[in-house]
C-alpha cells in the first residue's frame, strides 16, 4: 500500500529522512527510532503533508502530496495535542466526518460508530478542554477512523493512556488490522509495540536501519552472538559440557552460582544439543531462555551500539 523509493526530505540544512526505500502492506507495522530519527517526517510524507525532496512516495499507487483521492482512504492521528478546545468530542468528530465529504445523516451515523469503536460514546458530550490525556487520544483515533480508511497512521497513539486504556486501544487496532487495514504505529515504548506486532521499521538518523520481522532482524545481527540463560544448580558442569561443543564462545556463571549464560554463534545447534545434556548427562535444568530475542534487545543492539 505504501511504497518509498529513494525518498529523502530536507528542511534547509536539517535532514528529516534520507534515502528511504521501503514498502508497507496490510497489518500493523511499528515505526521505531529515537527522537529526531525521522518518524514524524516519514508519516507526513505518507499523509501528503510533505513532498519528498528527492525520490518518490506512492500510496495506493498514487502520489499522496495534495491528493484528495489518497486522503479519502487515509486516516491520520498526529502526535501533537491540538484541538478546537471549545467543541465537544462528538461535534469535533462529526465535523471531521463532514470534512471527509459525508452528508450530515451519514456523518452522524459514522461518528457514533467511531465513538463506539474507541469507547467514547458515553463521554463525548463534554467540551474537549476538560478531557484527560487518554480521552483526547481516543478522540484523535475516532477522527482518524471515522471515514473508514484503508490506511491508518498513528503517531505515538498510546502516549498517556493507562494500562486499561492501552489494552482497549490495542484490541481496537487488532480488530482493524484483522479487517485488512494497513496500520502504521510509531511508539517509544517497545513492550507496547511488541504486544501489537512483530513487524518493524526502524529509523535511525533519517535512514532505515532495519525492517521486517523482529526475529528475522535479530537473526541478521551476527555482530552480537546469541545468548541463552540457563538456570541450573550445576552451572559449572553444564559449562564444561557446553564449551566442549566447539561453537559456544563464552560461558558466564552468575555470581549466585545458580545460572549460566551461554553465548553462541549457532543457537540452532545449541538448542538441539540442550535436551541431550539434560537427559543423557543428567544435568538438572530448571529453566532456560534467550534474553535477547525480544524487541528491546534488538533495538538496543541496533541503535544503542552506535553512538547515541
Amino acid at each position: 500500500m505504501i511504497e518509498f523509493v529513494g525518498a529523502s526530505r530536507w528542511y534547509g540544512q536539517v535532514i528529516g529522512v534520507n534515502d528511504v526505500t521501503v514498502t508497507m502492506g496490510p497489518g500493523v507495522t511499528a515505526l521505531l527510532g529515537q527522537n529526531g530519527a525521522g518518524k514524524s517526517t516519514l508519516m507526513r510524507l505518507v499523509t501528503g503533508q510533505l513532498r519528498p525532496t528527492t525520490g518518490t512516495v506512492r500510496v495506493f499507487g498514487m502520489d499522496p502530496f495534495a491528493n484528495p483521492d489518497v486522503y479519502r482512504r487515509l486516516g491520520f492521528c498526529p502526535d501533537i495535542d491540538a484541538f478546537p478546545e471549545h467543541l465537544d468530542g462528538r461535534e469535533f468528530v462529526r465535523r471531521m466526518a463532514r470534512l471527509s465529504g459525508f452528508a450530515d445523516p451519514e456523518a452522524r451515523r459514522r461518528t457514533e460508530e467511531a465513538l463506539v469503536l474507541v469507547g467514547m460514546a458515553d463521554r463525548a458530550d463534554r467540551p474537549l478542554k476538560g478531557y484527560s490525556k487518554g480521552m483526547r487520544q481516543r478522540i484523535k483515533l475516532a477522527q482518524a477512523v471515522v471515514h473508514d480508511p484503508d490506511l491508518l497512521l498513528l503517531d505515538e497513539p498510546l502516549n498517556g493512556l493507562d494500562p486499561v486504556g492501552r489494552r482497549q486501544f490495542m484490541d481496537v487496532l487488532a480488530r482493524l488490522a484483522q479487517a485488512g487495514k494497513a496500520i502504521v504505529v510509531s511508539s517509544h515504548v517497545l513492550f507496547e509495540v511488541e504486544q501489537m506486532t512483530r513487524s518493524i521499521l526502524l529509523l535511525h538518523r533519517g535512514r532505515v536501519l532495519a525492517s521486517g520481522d523482529v526475529s528475522e532482524v535479530r537473526a541478521f545481527i551476527d555482530r552480537h552472538p546469541h545468548r541463552v540463560r540457563v538456570e541450573t544448580p550445576e552451572p559449572a558442569r553444564l559449562a564444561s559440557h557446553a564449551m566442549a561443543l566447539g561453537y559456544v564462545l563464552l560461558c558466564r556463571i552468575d555470581p549466585s552460582g545458580r545460572s549460566l549464560e551461554v553465548e553462541t554463534r549457532e543457537p540452532d545447534r545449541f538448542y538441539g544439543e540442550l535436551p541431550r545434556l539434560a537427559l543423557d548427562e543428567g544435568i538438572p535444568i530448571l529453566s532456560f531462555e534467550s534474553p535477547d530475542n525480544n524487541m528491546e534487545a534488538v533495538y538496543s543492539y541496533l541503535v544503542g551500539g552506535r553512538d547515541l
Binding site: L32, N35, H188, V189, L190, E296, Y299, S300, G304
Partner: peptide, 9 residues
C-alpha cells in the same frame, strides 16, 4: 514519560 527507548533504559 516521553523518553525514547534508550533514554528510558
Amino acid at each position: 514519560n516521553g523518553l525514547d527507548p534508550i533514554g528510558r533504559e
